[in-house]
């Protein structure tokens, strides 16, 4: 029930945003987040945006893993 899904902001008006969720347009209430910018990704839960997703952090986590993985395979060679 704590399921939340990432959705991309396509329009903002006041405390509401139109978001794209896998090709379908939904409305997201921004009350719990403050504001949002077009093009950014929000995490949606029960009609509300509860967080913004940080693409850089997402990429960094994967990068760290890939590097770490690289070292491990080097060590094993």
């Amino acid at each position: 029930m704590c399921l939340a899904v990432p959705a991309k902001v396509i329009e903002v008006s006041g405390t509401k945003a139109k978001v794209d969720l896998g090709g379908a347009t939904h409305e997201a209430d921004l009350t719990l987040l403050g504001q949002a910018e077009i093009g950014e990704y929000l995490l949606l839960h029960a009609g509300f945006a509860i967080a913004r997703l940080d693409a850089q952090e997402a990429e960094k986590t994967l990068e760290i893993f890939r590097e770490m993985e690289g070292e491990v395979s080097k060590r094993l060679q």
Binding site: P6, K8, Y41, L53, A55, A58, L62, F65, M68, E69
Partner: peptide, 23 residues
């Protein structure tokens, strides 16, 4: 969001599982 698709990458999962096994 390109960076999110990496989180379901099967080959990454396999490698991670190997790492977990060693640890």
């Amino acid at each position: 969001m390109k960076s999110l698709s990496g989180y379901s990458d099967a080959s990454l999962c396999k490698k991670l599982a190997g790492y977990i096994k060693r640890l």
